[in-house]
Simulated assay, not measured.
Amino acid sequence: MSAITHHIPDSMIAAYASGNLPQPFAMVVASHISVCTECRAALGAHQTVGGALIEQSDEIAISADMKNNMMALLDEPVTPKPVYDAKGVYPGPVMQALKGKPPRWKSLGMGVKQSILAQEGSGSVRLLYIPAGQAVPDHSHNGLELTLVLQGSFSDETGRFARGDVEIGDTDLEHTPIADAGDPCICLAATDAPLRFNALIPRLLQPLFRI
């Protein structure tokens, strides 16, 4: 894999380490960290600091009833969920969302396909398959979008993004991502609000495609 040049911001890694990152974005961060030694080291540093802060914090007394309830919960049998490893271009967190199965692709037209992994409220996380030379319609953002490249690469107004790279789009970014020559570009994309397409047809199809 080529060197990763576009990383997760440190503030977002800190939010992920503390469990305060929304699930769609957490999946992208976890997937990036699984292939990026630099961000994995940053996560370890935040976890170490967090552990030290917990050890230095004052003890808080709890009632006997709360303690008994907590101990009772620990005694309840737990059925562990299956754990899925990385497979092909898909990191472990993506395979976990897919439950170990291949993506179920649905056509968006012009060879572009998507597989929605999770959608809750206005937020979602999905896989995108973009053939070489094909573009995603020009759009801006109503919120935040994280896009992690799993295969191939794409380019837009801000630069080129290859496997392992993450592009962060906010309300200030308007772009037209185009898959580069070579392998089809497969991306993991998470949003917390619908995109803003500039052309009429993508806007009309947007409710159908849930993007």
Rank of each mutant, 00 (worst) to 15 (best):
G100Y: 02
T48D: 12
N69R: 08
I116F: 03
E120C: 08
G123N: 06
V89E: 08
S122E: 08
L73V: 10
E145L: 10
G152N: 13
Q119V: 14
S124G: 09
L73H: 13
L53P: 01
H141F: 01
S153R: 02
P82T: 02
A72W: 03
A135I: 01
E76H: 11
I130N: 02
M110W: 01
Y84Q: 04
T79L: 13
V89N: 07
G133M: 09
R104W: 00
A132I: 07
K81D: 13
L53Y: 00
G50V: 03
S115L: 02
A61E: 15
A61C: 13
D75Q: 14
L53K: 06
D138V: 12
D65N: 10
K67F: 14
A45I: 09
G51P: 01
A132Y: 05
S63N: 10
Q151F: 10
T48S: 15
G143A: 11
L43T: 04
N68Q: 13
H141V: 04
A135W: 00
D85A: 15
T79Y: 05
A135K: 12
E55P: 00
D65F: 04
Q56I: 01
L150Y: 00
V112R: 02
S140W: 01
A52D: 04
I60W: 04
M70L: 15
C39G: 13
G50K: 04
M66G: 01
A72F: 08
A135Y: 00
L146V: 08
G51A: 12
A135E: 03
L74P: 03
T48Q: 13
P80D: 05
T147R: 05
A72D: 10
V78E: 00
A132H: 03
L117P: 09
V136Q: 01
D65E: 11
G123I: 03
Q56F: 02
G50D: 02
G92C: 11
G109L: 05
L43P: 04
